[in-house]
Write a protein that binds this DNA or RNA. Structure first.
Length: 84
DNA sequence: CATTTGACGCCAA
DNA sequence: TTTGGCGCCAAAT
């Protein structure tokens, strides 16, 4: 745990299957409740194959943006049983 | 080094 | 309830 980014990656990586966290939640756990925006940016520019970024959604309940490597985000979430 | 961008979040109207 | 605007942060340009 050195910087905000490292925490975000660690947290997102810990998200178990079928679980979803909002950007705000991740930011909060990372130590900056207001960095929800930064969280999305980090995941976007630093997309890692080991990180289930598709498990990170908005607080509105919307999946949010998903382009880059995970254009299947809604499908995955649905497969996980997230969507009603 | 300064400015812009961007997968967000919350509040006011 | 829905829309618009402001705030906040980290990385990219």
């Amino acid at each position: 745990m050195k910087n905000f980014t490292a925490k975000v990656f660690a947290i997102v990586r810990k998200i178990g299957k079928g679980k979803v966290l909002t950007y705000g939640e991740v930011a909060r756990r990372a130590g900056n409740p207001k960095a929800s925006r930064a969280v999305g940016n980090i995941l976007n520019k630093n997309y890692d194959s080991s990180i289930p970024c598709h498990r990170v959604i908005r607080s509105d309940g919307k999946v949010g943006g998903y382009n880059r490597g995970s254009h299947k985000k809604p499908e995955i979430l649905k497969s996980e049983g997230y969507k009603h």
